[in-house]
Simulated scan of single mutants.
Amino acid sequence: MPPVPIISRSQWGADESMRRAAPVYDSMIRAGIIHHSATGNNYAPNESAAIVRSIYAYHTRTMGWGDIAYNALVDRHGQVFEGRFGGLDKPVEGSHTGGFNKDTWAVCLIGDFGKDVPTAVQLRSVGKLLGWRLALAGIDPKGTAALTSAGGPYTRFAQGITRTLPSIFSHRDVGDTECPGNAAYAFLDRIRDIAARLNQPPTEQDLEESLRGTAIYARWQALGGATGVLGPARSPEAPGEGQARYVIFAHGAIYWSRATGAQPLTGAIYDAWATLGYERSALGLPTSGQIQEPQWIVQNFQHGTLNMDRQNAAVTVVTDGQPRVLPPPPPGGPPVQLERFSPARNRLA
C-alpha cells in the first residue's frame, strides 16, 4: 500500500462522466516526473479537492485530454489525491509531459513555485509517494533512465531522440516550460533522498514528523504524545472507511472524521471494537474517549456504546438500547485494520 493516505477520485469528487476514454496502460514505469499546477498557494486543506476538480475540468473540457493529466497530485498540506483514472499501482499513461508521457509517472505539486517554496510536508509526501511507486517498478530513485522522445509541440526534443534523465526529473528538463518553478526545482534532490529512504524502516521520529499538523497529532499530543497513554506512533496516518483517518500507536489508536473528531481507543474496548469490524461495524466511529465511571469504563460511538466492567473486564455492546456481552477477542487478537484506496478498473464505468 502507499506510504501516505490517498484521497481517491470518488472522495475528491471526480465526475466520471467527464472522462472520454479508457486508460492507456504502458508496459512499465521507468521514471517519475515533477510538475506544479501554477495555481495559488494560499488555500486551506478543505479547499484542495475543489482545486483538483478544477484542474480535472480544465484538462478534460478545455485541453481535450480525456482525463486529468497527472497520476497523482499533492497539496501544500501533504494531502495526496488520486489522479488519472486506472490505478495508482498500474502503469497508466498520462498526458502531463509532451513527448515523454510513455513509461513515466507524474506527480503535480498543487501551487505556484516560481518563488514560493513547497512546504516540508508537501515535499515529504511527494518523496514518499514517488519512492513507493518507483519501488513497485524496481527503479532506483537516485538512478537514471534512457527515455526516447515521442516528439510533438510540447517538448524541445524531436521524435526519436533518446535522453538519459534522472529517475526523478522535472517537466522543465524535457519541455519548454518553467514547471515546476525555480523554487520547487531546487528541491528535486531532497525529493530523491526521501524517495530513496522509503524502503528503510521509519523511525519513531519519522512517524511523529509525518503526523505533525494533523488533528490526530494534536489529540495525541494532548494525551501526552509518545510518553502518554497511547505511546509512540507505529504507523503513518491511513485512510479508513469513508472519510475516516486513523493512526496506530503502541498502545492503541486514534480515529478521526470530520463528523466525530479525533478520538483515542485503547485496551479491551479497542480490542472489542476491532473484533466487531472497526469503523465498518454497526457501531461506526468513536465519538468520545473513554469515560471513567465507578463500575464501568464507557466509550461512545456513532450508533451505540461499549462498556467494560471493571471487575471482570467483560465488554458489553449496547445498540438500540439492547446490551450484549461480547466474547473475548480470538487468541491471535483482533483482525488487522487494512489501509485502503479506491480500486483500479480497466474499463470505463
Rank of each mutant, 00 (worst) to 15 (best):
T266H: 06
S170A: 15
Y246M: 09
V4R: 12
E93H: 08
G284P: 07
G332P: 09
P329Q: 01
G87D: 09
A268I: 01
D193W: 05
D15W: 05
G213F: 03
D112L: 06
I216Q: 03
P330H: 02
G94K: 00
F157W: 14
I269N: 05
Q263N: 15
E47I: 04
A244T: 14
L338H: 14
A14G: 06
Q122S: 08
A120K: 13
P201F: 08
C179Q: 06
L147I: 08
T203F: 05
A218I: 04
T60G: 06
Q263I: 07
I161S: 12
G304Q: 04
P328K: 03
R172H: 14
N71W: 00
A49I: 11
S17L: 13
R192N: 06
M18P: 01
G277V: 02
P23W: 03
Q263S: 08
G240N: 07
F249T: 01
P327M: 06
R124Q: 13
G138Y: 11
A186E: 09
Y154G: 10
A196K: 05
R245V: 08
D15H: 06
R245P: 04
E339R: 12
F100T: 01
A146Q: 13
F249M: 05
W220I: 02
A262C: 06
T62G: 00
D89K: 13
R124S: 11
H77L: 10
I68C: 01
G240A: 11
A158D: 15
T316K: 11
A150E: 15
A238P: 00
G321T: 10
E293A: 11
A274P: 00
I269S: 04
G151S: 10
W220S: 02
R347Q: 13
I29A: 02
E208W: 06
Q122E: 12
E82N: 07
T104G: 03
Y154K: 13
R192W: 01
W65Q: 14
R190G: 10
W132L: 02
A146W: 07
Y58L: 10
Y217G: 00
P23A: 05
G32N: 00
M1C: 11
A282T: 13
G40M: 07
P141I: 10
P329E: 01
G228A: 08
H251T: 04
R156H: 15
G151E: 12
A137K: 04
T305P: 02
G78C: 11
R340V: 14
A259D: 14
P335V: 05
S342F: 03
E241V: 14
G289V: 04
E82V: 08
R163P: 04
Q295F: 06
A14L: 14
S54W: 08
D271G: 01
